[in-house]
Design a protein around this nucleic acid. Structure first.
Length: 298
DNA sequence: GCGACAG
DNA sequence: ATCTTGTCGC
């Protein structure tokens, strides 16, 4: 047989479960892209399948940025055990360069700077990034085909194994329940959460304007979405991570499960990762890291 | 046909 | 996402 298992007898490794066949191909047709997203959604699991506890990954004070990014303090390789190291949370974000579009919408040219920041026990343990040429423009609903490759490249550059991925954009809050957080989470078979700054689709249970910090309301599937589980219409949450006392109002975040996390746990985990700013710390750091690479300071 | 639309 | 000055408020 030509298909002997090369990993027979090998110890369990999460990457063994990776699904390379789900890698987004920017040259695919729109129909093929949508078909792949339906396959991804069918494999995705929007329920808790992890050992993550909000209090175990909580960050009480924000990382100091402004004066340069905090330095990574990775401890040497420790298989398991020295004390008890907490879960590794990885935040990912992108910045862009070049592109020929006039007003900022692009034709697909230019390059993506994707940055990944790994955090454990309240400290940054590793930074990684990848610079990738872009081939297609941004199309609502097909974001993963533009930025999925760059994100996977950044994750490949990371030496540690993530226990949770926090991605910019949607997870289950997506027309085919396969936003970029779901796509990446399924490929790596790692728990993932999507954090978006605006709503792609779906309806909030309550109006979202002017809510106090800590407030949240479910986002339910609307008719533009194909819901796999008809009995579970909650696809995510609007979550007010920060609010000013009096001044102008801040919009909430839209949190949705990517893979192996339930909607409510996803918000609880993101809430624990927020430390005073609108964006969760892993995302803030990844954002700053991508900018640093883009502007040459790295 | 019209409107909506993550980054 | 990116392009950019000023402006309001603690």
């Amino acid at each position: 047989m030509a298909d002997a298992d090369p990993n027979a007898g090998a110890p369990f490794d999460p990457s063994d479960l990776a699904h390379p066949e789900f890698t987004p191909d920017p040259s695919a047709s729109r129909e093929e892209m949508e078909a792949l997203q339906r396959e991804i959604a069918a494999v995705a699991r929007f329920e808790d399948d992890h050992g993550l506890l909000p209090e175990r990954i909580a960050l009480d004070s924000p990382f100091e940025i402004g004066s340069g990014l905090p330095s990574a303090t990775q401890r040497t390789l420790v298989p398991e055990g020295s004390g008890d190291a907490g879960p590794i949370v990885v935040g990912i974000d992108q910045a862009f360069r070049g592109g020929g579009g006039a007003s900022g919408t692009d034709d697909g040219s230019g390059e993506s700077i994707s940055a990944a920041v790994a955090i454990r026990d309240g400290r940054v343990i590793e930074y990684a990034h990848a610079v990738t040429p872009l081939s297609i423009p941004y199309i609502p609903g097909l974001l993963a085909f533009r930025e999925g490759g760059p994100i996977l490249a950044a994750l490949d550059a990371l030496s540690v194994e993530p226990d949770l991925l926090v991605l910019d954009g949607s997870g289950r809050i997506h027309y085919r329940e396969a936003g970029i957080a779901t796509h990446i989470g399924v490929i790596h078979d790692v728990p993932s959460i999507g954090v978006a700054k605006s709503l792609l689709c779906g309806d909030p249970d309550e109006p979202i304007d002017g809510r106090p910090a800590g407030w949240r309301t479910p986002i339910r599937a609307d008719r533009s979405m194909s819901t796999v589980a008809e009995d579970e219409p909650v696809v995510g949450y609007a979550y007010q991570s920060r609010q000013y006392p009096n001044a102008r109002t801040i919009n909430p975040l839209y949190v949705s499960p990517g893979h192996r996390v339930s909607p409510s746990t996803a918000v609880d985990l993101i809430e624990a990762l927020c430390a005073g700013y609108k964006l969760p710390e892993p995302t803030r750091l990844a954002d700053a890291s991508a900018d640093a690479v883009t502007h040459g300071s790295r």
